[in-house]
Write a protein that binds this DNA or RNA. Structure first.
Lengths: 358, 358
DNA sequence: CGATGTCATGACATCGGTGTCATATATGCA
DNA sequence: TGCATATATGACACCGATGTCATGACATCG
């Protein structure tokens, strides 16, 4: 591989001048520049980032650690749309002329220290720490050596974090359902220990309140439990209880649950959306687009979260954070309306004036 | 960040001795070793991989390029279980004390040269080139500078490649169905231009032949087309034609299609698996495990492919390829049997003696 | 006892860029 | 015309490892 010395020799200049042509950090005569550029092209020259990193003390690398935290998947396999997260982050990082280095622990928390050690050796400028579902984490000390942004998770020390706006997402979904004429809105929730559960429940309640609808607790049931074997029966029972409260639509905690609910409702002879509407959460396109009818769902904006986290991290590294920048940022996703939700005749209902609720 | 000089000073030895302690490439007195190790620990020393790379001319980096090829997604979004591929590759690469560098073009082929340029600057030792679905690709010259392994794709120059064993997977699935008593096996295929289509069709035919069953062309219909808007109607029609041939089971080209077929069959009042069995392909757990009943599916072994590709690449880099190693390797996945397939009473059928068909 | 070998260690150069400083010529302005 | 700047370029050191070679202290052997 050609070096800067080879280029300098070929162009008849000093290495430093070649460096100047590349970096544009000092004026170079037009003729000289052309000669250098010709030499670089003919030698197929590519500067060594190792040498650069060494001299400049800036590696141009960002580390991302995924699959990192859980020792075993306490809940279910998320299906890993994490790749969108990687893509979102990578795009932003590439724009800053940096490169993404990734490490995946394969869910074995014990491997994290070794992976972080690798990051240290590469002198990564910052770390993105990605959790597989919205949760709290405890960070080991080694991580705090670097600028870090948590993604899909947070800790108790106000470490910068980028999180999905679960409350807002559920609010927007339920609010949209109400605008489409629904009044009795069933809600099959996540297991109660999940962070997202509480937030989404709040969004649900706020949407009702904002629209002047009274909460019927019978309509809200825990839909899934961590133990897969039991889950289905429990889902059946939960659905049963919700249906007795006569909802016109059922919000499911996620698209996978909605997929099951499709099957369960059909077994009861209910047609979607004619007899009852259904909504999901996550907007896993693999599911939502291919269910029949298409599933209305609140999008978990993974790509946007990845991009936002990368952006935040770069600002931290560059010292260009806005002074008022909060440690935690929420990223909202759109509601994707598909055919699983039917608008109801609203002539007999009176939409209360919408009040803004912060 | 502490350097080897700091460690040397703290331990009262020369930098070279510290280097020897780290690399074990020459004998070091036990006392000296302990002093050096203590110094390293107290300074929280981490050697600079940039300096190492520079001196040794080995970067310890492997580049992976994903989302690389398609300008627009000609077919549908794959749902990107690519993350499993990344994980599989990363695991193997970490074991070899190397680090995975990733670049994602976001489907914009025009960005590939820039990404490869980044790889060159980092002096990656090899490249994994990942396609989003099984296909043929044309490689630009720049890629051939490096050792490279294609993943999920191949070219016309016998570039090393790791591919899913589509023929074998479909064979194993259909063979398994036959062993479970099925004789009339419907097959809703991929669009014909897909590489996987031809291979799976071959597997289907071979399974029939191996078991002495005659092919009924009516049972095989193209199930999907690249234009999403039309797809559904065409799938309905295709399913209709297949059903007229009275199958006891329907193989779908992928799990997404199977998910739709579930809905379509139910609309016709057919219960799965009581009235008819269904199988998919891909084994996207997000779908297959959560459909009710669980979907039997042939697994696309992404994690294994990633691992195998990384392994192959490392052998190429290390010059330790087995002499007989073929350029293209097929990776087989298991058939995951779930409740969507019902074993049929086989007392009235006569399983022909299984013949091995290579 | 001297030659040879092993152990243990350090001095020094080197990998490929870039920051610092020096130098030489050209230009602007009073 | 003379001095302050700006332009254009090079010499040299340095970033942090490690390969090469040299050296001194012992141990071994004939």
């Amino acid at each position: 591989m050609a070096t800067i010395y080879d280029v300098a020799k070929a162009a008849g200049v000093s290495p430093k001048t070649v460096s100047r042509v590349m970096n544009g950090d000092a004026p170079v005569n037009e003729k000289t520049r052309e000669a250098v550029e010709a030499a670089m092209a003919s030698l197929n020259y590519s500067p060594s980032s190792a040498a650069r990193a060494m001299r400049s003390q800036r590696s141009g690398l960002i580390g991302m650690i995924t699959g990192a935290i859980s020792t075993t998947h306490q809940f279910e396999d998320t299906g890993l749309p994490e790749i969108y997260l990687v893509q979102g982050a990578q795009r932003v990082i590439a724009q800053s002329n940096r490169t993404l280095l990734i490490a995946d622990s394969g869910g074995q928390a014990g491997r994290i220290p070794a992976l972080l050690q690798t990051f240290r050796e590469h002198r990564v400028e910052g770390v993105l720490y990605v959790a597989e579902y919205h949760r709290e984490v405890g960070l080991s000390a080694i991580v705090r050596d670097h600028p870090i942004v948590l993604v899909n998770c947070f800790d108790t020390n106000d470490t910068p974090a980028v999180l999905p706006d679960d409350e807002g997402g559920q609010f927007a979904l339920v609010d949209g359902l109400i605008k489409r004429g629904h009044r009795r809105i069933g809600f099959l929730t996540l297991p109660e220990q999940q962070i997202a559960h509480g937030l989404r429940a709040e969004g649900y309640v706020r949407a009702l309140k904002t629209n002047g609808i009274e909460l019927d607790e019978q309509l809200v049931q825990v839909g899934a439990l961590p133990i897969p074997a039991n889950e289905f029966d429990l889902l059946w029972d939960a659905l049963d209880r919700v249906l007795r409260a006569e909802p016109t639509v059922i919000c499911c905690a996620n698209d996978k649950m909605a997929m099951r609910v499709y099957g369960l409702l059909r077994e009861r002879g209910l047609a979607i959306p004619r007899d009852i509407s259904v909504a999901g959460y996550d907007d896993y396109r693999m599911i939502a687009e291919h269910l029949h009818p298409g599933l209305t769902s609140a999008q978990l904006p993974y790509a946007a979260m990845g991009a936002r986290a990368a952006d935040k991290l770069l600002r931290i590294i560059g010292g260009t954070q806005r002074p008022d920048e909060p440690a935690r940022e929420l990223v909202s996703g759109p509601i994707v309306w598909r055919d699983s939700v039917q608008s109801r005749d609203t002539t007999i209902t009176h939409l209360s004036t919408r009040r803004k609720d912060t």
